[in-house]
């Protein structure tokens, strides 16, 4: 069945005919649009100023307490149904418990992680990612760029993530985080946004509440979001 809009699309605005005898050159789409903006604003006697503001304003008032950044981060990550893990042994135990034995690991991290996987045994971990079989990888391990403690957020970026798809398509995504990478709050993380074309803040597992407002995790992205603290 064709989609019939119940309401009309906006009509095309015909540009005014040139008032000179010689046809004026067609203005570029950019000039046309900007000219409309300029003429819309022309009658304004003065423009609203740009206020400055203090970062303190947007810091959540949750008591941070005398805990270190990782503990605070881990607590906030749990609040959004994420999984903080503090050792490779915990990671291997979690993966084993979930029955997730086939995965991918960023080759740059594999040396560090391999002993724990070898000790447990029974894992099939690839260090190349084949996009033709994205559903084969039950878990993928990539490096995080940073963390945000206040919100339990993992920061990923093009430069640090070995494959965008690996950080997105598996059921279980493990982001490897270092203690020194944790920002305390959102303004600090904004100030430290890396020069990178694709910075992703992940706050817990992928979710939707589209169906009757019921929370379902693992919509298109990971259903399990793990932050693994290494060093």
């Amino acid at each position: 069945m064709a989609r019939q809009p119940p309401y009309p699309a906006r009509r095309q605005i015909t540009p005014p005919a040139p008032s000179f005898l010689l046809p004026a050159p067609m203005p570029s789409p950019r000039d046309t649009l900007l000219a409309r903006v300029t003429s819309a604003l022309a009658p304004l006697p003065k423009r609203a100023p740009l206020p400055n503001w203090d970062n303190e304003l947007v810091i959540m008032r949750q008591a941070r307490g005398p805990v270190d950044a990782w503990t605070f981060f881990a607590e906030r990550l749990k609040a959004v149904n994420g999984t903080p893990l503090a050792s490779t042994t915990d990671l291997v135990a979690t993966l084993t418990q979930g029955g997730w034995k086939h995965g991918y690991c960023d080759p740059a991290l594999w040396d560090e992680l391999r002993p724990a996987f070898d000790a447990a045994g029974g894992f099939n971990v690839e260090t190349t990612f084949d996009r033709a079989r994205i559903d084969d990888y039950q878990f993928c391990i990539t490096a995080a760029t940073a963390g945000i403690a206040e919100t339990g957020t993992l920061v990923l970026s093009d430069l640090d993530t070995s494959r965008r798809l690996a950080a997105l398509s598996p059921w279980v995504h493990v982001a490897v985080l270092r203690r020194a990478q944790i920002h305390i709050d959102v303004p600090a993380a904004i100030a430290a946004l890396p020069q990178d074309p694709n910075v992703i803040w992940c706050t817990g597992p992928s979710k939707t509440a589209d169906v009757e407002g019921i929370l379902i995790e693992g919509v298109h992205g990971p259903g399990i979001q793990i932050a693994l603290l290494l060093g």
Partner: peptide, 13 residues
């Protein structure tokens, strides 16, 4: 925050 906040500033690196 929503689950994913994406800051996109160009083609892939």
């Amino acid at each position: 925050l929503t689950v994913y906040t994406e800051f996109i500033s160009g083609p892939r690196s």
